[in-house]
Amino acid sequence: MDTQAIARIIDKYHGEPSSLIQVLLEIQADCHWLPGEALELVAERLRVPMSRIRHIATFYKAFSLVPKGRHEVHVCMGTACHVRGAPRILERLTDLTGLQPGETDLELKVTLETVNCLGCCALGPVMVVNGKTHGKLSPAAAADVMKTYE
């Protein structure tokens, strides 16, 4: 992402320090992570100390300070999914990918994440890969879904 694009996002919010989180969300959406150079620009333009930006970037779950993989896998760990066997789905996926939740493989192929609730409780257990919902999973079915993403 070039500095101009970031500057445009900051301008959209009139450079208000209180818009920090909204600005970071837009950068995250565009880049799929928060590159250091972008954060420095945000700090300068919004006149917010870097220490606060780093706290926010690590406090809120939507942000990542490392690049994400091409495929973003979100396994729902909400209560409804939990009682319907979500832990076993996650376990199968960690076995399969060798990743713990929050991790990305070295080739930047897959990022494995957990989410608290996707609000599709009727379909539980659920996972979302690149925005597509896969419901009523068994561990074996979850593994099969993963194999379709290269």
Partner: peptide
């Protein structure tokens, strides 16, 4: 942050 206004140390996570 408050006295020195340097922000050399912060919280993360």
């Amino acid at each position: 942050a408050e006295i020195k206004k340097l922000h050399a140390v912060g919280f993360i996570d």
